[in-house]
Design a protein around this nucleic acid. Structure first.
Lengths: 220, 220
DNA sequence: TCAATAGTTAATGTATACGTTAATTCATAC
DNA sequence: GTATGAATTAACGTATACATTAACTATTGA
């Protein structure tokens, strides 16, 4: 098998640490420090940081080191606006063209898993299944660029979703929405699939942002 | 003033050369060759290539050198689907919230310039004004991520648009569409702005793709 | 006390040497 | 003639030394 390069390792480790909040937003360090922490030289470290910067997770400020970017409420507004637009595009299109049974089954499984998780009050599992559903939606659509973008914005907003997960009301309505989207897809009703998913994402966004505002969390 | 780094210079030069088709799609070279051509070492060259890869303009194939990515018909389908979605989002939103007179004027100027260019049969000037209109639409909306994405996808499809510019019918209808979008924005009719722009982009895409298919241009 | 400036320094940008890897070539056996 | 595998080699990955730059600091003059 082909060996992973150090820069790839650096990229994945750093990304993991950022998404899991082990490297908190606002964390700042020089490239050399990061390199030392990773046990490699600055060269592959720098390359990883450049990639993470292009994904909006860190910022490289010449002479000040890299900084893990916090996510503001406005960032979340931007991100959710895009997720809403692209995902509902995907939902509509897959309803229009129809989906092989295997894909429908995968979507259906994700919805079931969300229900199961919710009944068990396992919010982390619920979030994972929810994420899977959204990921399937765009991967079934087949536009690879949409897929990449949605994955990227899900990453950018991951920490925020995880943080608010336990602070928000139980997402029962969310599960119902997903089931309704899936139903519209099965019926081949593109307009309904698009609209329902659109409203679903808008509601999620509004909820999240209101929560952040209520809690006075400007940055996280 | 703060001096530009070599990697920045490399990035811009390479990007220019690719967009202007001086480095044709399919062009392949080792990092060392590219570096020599740019008059610098591999380090900044590599960094520039990584950036260009993240923007979808080149591909880095270990042990084979970098390659200027051709754009296929399917790529154009993907790109225009996203542009359609994000730009009509922007059109709708700016109609909804209203725009300061200066912004309206800038949009109006772009429309006028398109008309003038078309009357003078100056297709290159027309394309520039058209691009400006689309750019203004998203910059007025204010979602910086949408702006970045739209700019990036406009870049990815730039060569293709330039190539087909002289092969397509005169874009009279296109100008009328833009005027109609602007009118809807002025009236504050979000739904109309969104819909008209959506149809406009879908028509452009269909035209472009049909043209590519007719000409049998699978890659460019 | 404040502002301007020159010197200091920390951090990154860059070049380069070297190690590593995988594509290719060539020899050999069948 | 073909398939296998070892040797070759071209290209990149990595570490590191050095150059460069802009932030910082301390000094000086007002």
């Amino acid at each position: 098998m082909t060996k992973k390069s150090n820069s790839e390792i650096a990229y994945q480790k750093l990304k993991d640490q950022i998404l899991e909040n082990e490297l908190a937003a606002g964390y700042q360090a020089t490239e050399e420090d990061v390199a030392r922490q990773l046990g490699m030289s600055r060269t592959p470290t720098h390359e990883a940081l450049v990639r993470l910067q292009s994904e909006g997770l860190v910022e490289i400020r010449p002479r000040h080191g890299m900084r893990v970017l916090p996510v503001s409420i406005d960032d979340m507004r931007e991100i959710y606006e895009i997720l809403t637009s692209l995902e509902s595009l995907a939902a509509g299109e897959i309803a229009r063209k129809g989906l092989p049974e295997a894909d429908l089954q995968a979507l259906s499984d994700a919805v079931s898993d969300m229900d199961t998780a919710l009944q068990a009050d396992d919010l982390v599992a619920w979030a994972a299944a929810d994420k899977r559903f959204h990921g399937l939606l765009v991967s079934c659509h087949g536009n690879t660029r949409v897929q990449t973008l949605v994955n990227n914005f899900m990453d950018q907003s991951h920490r925020c979703r995880m943080l608010t997960l336990k602070l928000r009301p139980r997402p029962d309505k969310s599960n119902a929405d997903h089931a309704a989207v899936l139903d519209a897809i099965r019926r081949g009703d593109a307009e309904a699939a698009r609209k329902i998913h659109h409203q679903h994402r808008e509601k999620s966004a509004a909820l999240l942002i209101e929560l952040l505002e209520t809690l006075g969390l400007k940055q996280l």
